[in-house]
Design a protein around this nucleic acid. Structure first.
Length: 550
RNA sequence: GCCCCCUUAGCUCAGUAGGAUAGAGCACAGGUUUCCUAAACCUGGUGUCGCAGGUUCGAUUCCUGCAGGGGGCACCA
């Protein structure tokens, strides 16, 4: 524990935060929960800066520059070459080279262990994502959710959270019935009957395939039987087949789940019923018009919601309540649900249910992933599951590749629309930023191959201006990582990696790493090694390969 | 009709838990290879941060209204 603590404090931004905290305490000023530290927009301002004096001005009723002066008069300057006040009251810090070199040395020794933090403090977090109905293959929208969920789970796990990933299978209710009926109709066509597919039925190619397989498995033994007779068999067969396909797709996409929870099971074990009884006991459920209602308005929802319909069947919401009760009982400290943005109207009632069951509102986070707009050569392309015109995740994996697809999905903030041009992604041209980052990694590896045996010993005096800039960029990574963790935003890492790769490529062209000068070569190789470690870690967080050759 | 999200360079998007001169990629034009991988690099330039008010020492960021785009409104899932 103390080791982790030390590491945490020695990363550039944590150290600065600590020093500012000490200074503010010395001045007997009230400490803010988290002192703000940022990377200055302009590098001439310094390595890091803090607007803390401007923040304090509100409570202290003193001009920010005066407060900044006071902080400067007491702060421990051991690690700083220069501290200055600028603009309206920013305090800018420039680190001593010696400190930066020690950081670099530590990074080279510890490699990825250098990034260990204990932000998570072993808190148990459950991340539920994808959770698509098992009524057809995953499409690219699910892919985006999968990429984000999986990257986020990597990131949180790395930050010391105890993460469980889960897929909730909506295998009860009407959709699954429609699946069964659709396959049955397709089966009838195989038998040579002319049948019409009703509007609500699934018509994709995969329905025909399932029917075909069913036919091959059971042959004539089921021929001509009614849906009443075959329904259960067909549903079971189709469902298992689709779930297996989904698992396969996700696996090939690099996404794994720690557990899969079935909605049907929640009914069979009586959990749905028990959840409603529990809410009733707590006084949050009442009867009206022959139905049972959950008073979600008590927790800020627009209207109360039906959980048990007057016809005696449960609503989808009822099983969702049961599912969240189930999650809560498993002892998680925090629940993260990743949903498609089209479900946003559903948030208040689920949050209400979770609170009724004793959870704090802050313990459940629902991250909305915006829609993916599909383009083909710049033109919008409409998808419809029912009509069978959609791009599946499988197609993207096969034609574009899992790495590229994942990376593209992670180049946007999750609540921002994503334009995905299939043709452009296939081109594997400059428009695919993933290659840019991977290439930097492969390039560095190639230098090492050329260099042969290398020990990462450097002489800091030999670093030039570009190299110092790169060292600082590398050392910023723990801060970027922490932001990605705290904001639950994987895309911050994606952007950072592109910036780092860009700096490296530029450096590579300007300076040769390997030369006759042994010391200089070793020094530059050390820096390359550090860049490589960061690239590899970042890519691993995103779930993207760091290739040795391209 | 009500609710949620979005609106930043020609295009696609970062940034903003109120702060310094608002950034990147692509596209476009030109250039770089006897040299560790040219999937690269260098040089070119743009902004009423949708509009209008408000709060503030300070607003692209917060609040209100409006406009445009998307999504959601059920005893459907």
């Amino acid at each position: 524990m103390s080791v982790l603590y030390t590491i945490y404090l020695t990363s550039m931004h944590s150290l600065l935060r600590k020093k500012l905290e000490e200074a503010i305490l010395k001045l007997n000023y009230q400490l803010e929960p988290q002192i703000e530290v940022e990377i200055p927009k302009n590098e001439s301002f310094g390595d890091l800066s803090s607007p803390v004096a401007m923040e304090l001005t509100k409570t202290l009723k003193k001009p920010p520059r005066t407060i900044a002066d006071e902080i400067l008069s007491v702060i421990d300057r051991e690690f700083f070459e220069d501290i200055s006040i600028a603009g309206p009251g920013f305090i800018n810090f420039k680190f001593k080279k010696e400190f930066l070199f020690n950081q670099l040395k530590e990074l080279l020794e510890k490699e990825e262990k250098f990034f260990i933090t204990d932000i998570g403090r072993s808190r148990k977090v459950q991340i539920e994502f994808v959770s698509a109905n098992p009524t057809g293959p995953l499409h690219l929208g699910h892919g985006r959710g999968a990429a984000i969920g999986s990257a986020l789970s990597n990131i949180l796990r790395e930050a010391g959270y105890e993460v469980t990933t889960e897929y909730y299978i909506n295998d009860a209710g009407k959709q699954i019935e429609i699946l069964g009926l659709s396959v049955y109709l397709a089966l009838q066509r195989i038998w040579g009957k002319e049948v019409e597919f009703p509007e609500e039925c699934y018509k994709g190619e995969y329905i025909k395939e399932i029917a075909q397989e069913l036919y091959e498995s059971y042959g004539d033994s089921i021929k001509g039987r009614s849906y009443e007779e075959l329904g259960d068999l067909i549903i079971d067969f189709s469902y298992r087949k689709i779930i297996n396909e989904i698992k396969k797709d996700l696996e090939d996409f690099g996404v794994t789940f720690d557990s899969w929870v079935s909605e049907r099971k929640l009914y069979h074990t009586g959990e749905v019923q028990r959840a409603i009884i529990k809410l009733k006991e707590l006084g949050f459920v009442y009867e009206k018009d022959g139905a049972l209602w959950f008073c979600s308005t008590s927790f800020g929802d627009d209207k109360d919601r039906v959980v048990l319909k007057s016809d005696g069947t449960y609503t989808y919401f009822a099983s969702d309540i049961a599912y969240h009760k189930n999650k809560i009982e498993r002892g998680f400290d925090e629940l993260i649900n990743i949903w498609g943005a089209d479900h946003h109207g559903y948030i208040p009632r689920v949050k209400a249910a979770v609170q009724a069951l004793g959870f704090k509102a802050s313990q459940i986070k629902i991250l909305l992933v915006q829609m993916v707009n599909l383009l083909r050569e710049g033109k919008p392309f409409q998808m419809s599951k029912r009509a069978g015109t959609f791009v599946t995740l499988r197609e993207l994996i096969d034609e574009i590749g899992a790495d590229t697809t994942r990376f593209i999905f992670l180049t946007r903030r999750q609540d921002s629309h994503l334009e995905f041009d299939v043709e452009v992604a296939k081109k594997q041209s400059q428009e695919n930023p993933v290659f840019y980052v991977q290439y930097a990694h492969a390039r560095i590896n190639s230098i090492f191959e050329k260099a042969g045996h290398v020990s990462y010993v450097f002489n800091g005096e030999l670093f030039n201006e570009e190299e110092m800039r790169l060292i600082k960029k590398v050392l910023q990574y723990p801060m970027i990582f922490e932001l990605a963790v705290n904001f639950r935003e994987p895309h911050r890492i994606t952007f950072y990696l592109q910036e780092l790769a860009s700096l490296f490529h530029s450096y590579y062209h300007k300076h040769r790493v390997l030369s006759d000068d042994e010391k200089l070569s070793q020094t530059r190789l050390s820096l390359c090694r550090a860049i490589m470690i960061v690239l590899r870690h970042g890519l691993r967080m995103l779930g993207v390969k760091a290739p040795h050759k391209m």
